[in-house]
Write a protein that binds this DNA or RNA. Structure first.
Lengths: 372, 372
DNA sequence: CTGTTAGCGCCTTCAC
DNA sequence: GTGAAGGCGCTAACAG
C-alpha cells in the first residue's frame, strides 16, 4: 500500500512509545537482515560475534521488544499458562498461586488466571480459550477436566495441551497429579488427638463430592481404627471449608448434651469459625473441647487460642506443579505424581481432655501394646 | 510449503483437536468468504441473515474457535489486561482480584497477573511485557508506575496503553484513581474511639512510604483534633500491615507501664496479631485495651474478640477499576477518580475504657475469663 | 451485502 | 554465517 517508505521514517527515539519498534527497525540499525536479528535472540551461537554485538546494541538503542502476538502466531506457542481455580478469593489458593507464578516467571511464562466461580458459562469460555491455542498449558486446581464433572463423568474436552492437576487430584485423567497425602495426614491428626487421650473425636467435613474430603474422611476413619476407637456417624458434622460452615458446626456442638472432647476440622477456616462459636457460648478451648485444623493458613498461628493444624507446603505445591508443567512443555520427562510432605503443627488449641479420670487411660486399656 | 492441499483434507470432526480449525475451513463449509465469517462474528448486522446462519452452523459443526494470536496481530489488540500487584498471597488483594476478574470477563477480557514481589527485575519484565503490546491495558495496585518510585521519581515508562490506579493512588500520574477515602475513614474511626471515652489512642502504622499510610496517618491526626485530643508521637507504633508487625506492636504495648486505652491498627492483620499478643500477656480486649482494625477481612468477624474495623468494599473496588479501564479501552469517557464508601463495623474488640482513672497495673492477670 | 487482497511482525526453511 | 522470501490466521480496506 503506502508503506514502501515506512522503514525510512527517522528513527524516532524509543521513548516515542506509540508505534512499537519492530524487528526491521533493529535490523536496519544493525545493518543486518531481520533473520539475523531473530537468530541473535533465539540461537546466538549461530551468529557471528560481531553481528551479534551490533544487534544487541541496536536492540538496546531502540528498546526493541519482540511482538509476542506475531511470535505466537508464527511459532504456535504463547508462553502463557492458564491456571484454573474455583475461588480466587480463598486465601488457601493465593499462596499456591504465588508459588506457581514464581516458577512460571523464571521459565519465561506468563500466567492467566481463571476463577471459575462455579459458573459453567465461564468454564465453557475458558475451555474454548485453551482450545483456541491461547495458552501452552494449564494447571487445574478445581478437581476436574473441562467438560467433565468431578466424578469423571462426561467427555473431557480435547485441549491438545499439557495439563497438570494440583491439590485436587483428578483420578480419571491421565495427567500429572501434584498433591499432599490427604488420607495419611488426616489419619495422623486423628491419631495425634487419640494419643492425647481423646476418645470422642468429631470430624467436620468438606463438601461431599470433593476428593480432598473423600480422602480426609477415609484418613479420619483410618486414624480411628489405628487408635482402636469406634467410628460414630453422629460425630461427623457437615461442612464446606468455609468459616460459616465452621460456625454452624460449632452451634451444633454447643447444642449437644454430650459433646466430643475434640473436633478435627478439615480446614483452618472451619476450625476458626468453630472455635469462635464455642468461645462465644462460654466453652473453653482446649479445656472443654480441643480443636484441630487443616492447611496452616497464616491466621492459624494467631487464632485465639493458636490453632493446632496440618501444615501444607502451599508455595512448594505451586512451584512443583509449575515445574512439572514446564517440563511437559519443553518435552522433558516428568513425574506422574508428586506428593509433598505435610506436618502437624502443635499449638494451643489441642490438649489432653480435662474432665476424664486419668486412671483408665494409663493402664487398664491394653490396646496400646506396641510390638517392638 | 506443502500446504497447497490443506484445505482439501476431509473435515475431520472437530474432536480431533490437534490441528485447529481455521476460518477458511468455516468459510468453505458455509460457502462464503473468510471475510464474511469474520464479519458474522464481529459485526453480525453487516451480514445477511442467511449467510450468518450458514456461518454459525458451520462454526458449530467444526467447533471453530478464532485464533487469538492472529487476531491480535492483525488488530493490534489483545483482549488482555494486566493486573499489577505487590503481593498475590495477601488476602486483601484476592477479593479485589475477584471483582476485577468478574467485570473483565463480562467484557470479554482476560486477566494476566503480575505479582511484583518487590523484585525490580520482575517489574522490568512486565514493563517490557506491556510495551510489547501484550496487553491492552493495566490496573495498578502497587502504588507506582513502571519506572517510577512511589514518590513519583524517575521517568515513567511509556506504555502507550490505558492505565488505572486502584487502592493505592498514584498522585503523580494522570490516570483514573479508584480508591476509598483513607483519610476520612481513619479520622472517623479515631473519632469513634474518642467518642467512647478513649483519650489515649495508639496508632499502628503502615509502611512509611505507602500512600495509604500517609493518608490514614493524617486522618488519625484529623480525628484526634476533631475530638480535641492531643497528638502524642509516643503513641505511634510502626507497622507494615502484616500480622508479625502487629505482634511486635503488641509486645511494645505490653512492655509499657502506662498504656493507651485503645489501639487503632491500620490493617486487620496487624490488629489480629496485636490482640493475640495482648491476650497472651494476660491483658484483656477490650477491657484493658480496645483494638480497632482496617479492611474488614473475612477473619475480622471471627477473631477473638470479634474485631471492630473499617469495611472496604473490596470486590466493588475491583469491579469499579475494571469498569473504568474497559471504558477507556473502548474509547468511552470515564471518571478521573472514584471513591467508594467505607463503613465502620462495630464488633466486640472496642468498648469504652474501663479503668480511666487508674491504669491497669502490671498485674499477673491470667487469661480472660469469659462470662458464661 | 459480499469477495478479493494485502499485510499485522515474526521465524524459518532455502539458497548462497 | 547470512539474506531473501513465504506464510502462521486473521481482519481492514477496497471493489463490486
Amino acid at each position: 500500500m503506502d508503506e514502501s517508505g515506512a522503514l525510512d521514517r527517522p528513527d524516532e527515539d524509543n521513548g516515542s512509545g506509540h508505534r512499537a519498534v519492530r524487528i526491521q527497525d533493529v535490523a536496519k540499525l544493525a545493518d543486518v537482515s531481520t533473520a539475523t536479528v531473530s537468530r541473535a535472540l533465539a540461537s546466538p551461537e549461530k551468529v557471528s560475534p560481531e553481528a551479534r554485538a551490533r544487534v544487541l546494541e541496536a536492540i538496546a538503542k531502540t528498546g526493541y521488544v519482540p511482538n509476542l502476538a506475531a511470535r505466537s502466531l508464527r511459532s504456535q506457542k504463547t508462553s502463557m499458562v492458564l491456571v484454573v481455580l474455583p475461588d480466587l478469593s480463598n486465601t488457601f489458593f493465593s499462596k499456591i498461586l504465588r508459588g506457581i507464578e514464581e516458577r512460571l516467571f523464571e521459565a519465561g511464562y506468563g500466567m492467566i488466571i481463571s476463577d471459575l466461580d462455579g459458573s459453567p458459562e465461564k468454564e465453557a469460555h475458558f475451555a474454548a480459550f485453551t482450545a483456541a491455542g491461547r495458552v501452552d498449558g494449564a494447571i487445574l486446581l478445581n478437581g476436574h477436566l473441562f467438560g467433565q464433572t468431578r466424578e469423571g463423568e462426561g467427555t473431557p474436552a480435547k485441549t491438545g495441551i499439557p495439563l497438570v492437576a494440583l491439590c485436587e487430584a483428578i483420578p480419571s485423567a491421565d495427567i500429572p497429579q501434584i498433591e499432599i497425602d490427604n488420607r495419611a495426614a488426616a489419619s495422623r491428626m486423628t491419631q495425634h488427638l487419640a494419643s492425647l487421650g481423646h476418645r470422642s473425636i468429631a470430624y467436620v467435613s468438606g463438601p461431599a463430592h470433593n476428593i480432598l474430603e473423600k480422602e480426609r474422611f477415609i484418613g479420619y476413619q483410618d486414624g480411628l481404627k489405628a487408635a482402636g476407637l469406634p467410628f460414630d456417624p453422629a460425630l461427623v458434622l457437615p461442612g464446606d471449608y468455609t468459616i460459616e460452615s465452621g460456625v454452624m458446626a460449632g452451634q451444633d456442638l454447643v447444642g449437644r448434651t454430650t459433646r466430643p472432647t475434640a473436633a478435627f476440622c478439615t480446614s483452618d477456616e472451619m476450625a476458626i469459625g468453630l472455635m469462635r462459636t464455642l468461645l462465644s457460648a462460654g466453652l473453653r478451648v482446649p479445656e472443654d473441647i480441643s480443636v484441630a485444623g487443616f492447611d496452616d493458613i497464616d491466621f492459624a498461628a494467631v487464632a485465639e487460642p493458636a490453632l493446632t493444624t496440618i501444615h501444607q507446603p502451599r508455595r512448594e505445591l505451586g512451584q512443583a506443579a509449575a515445574s512439572v508443567l514446564i517440563d511437559l512443555l519443553q518435552g522433558h520427562p516428568s513425574p506422574k505424581r508428586i506428593r509433598l510432605e505435610t506436618e502437624i503443627i502443635v499449638r494451643a488449641s489441642v490438649a489432653p481432655p480435662q474432665n476424664i479420670e486419668k486412671a483408665p487411660a494409663k493402664s487398664t486399656r491394653t490396646r496400646a501394646i506396641k510390638p517392638t
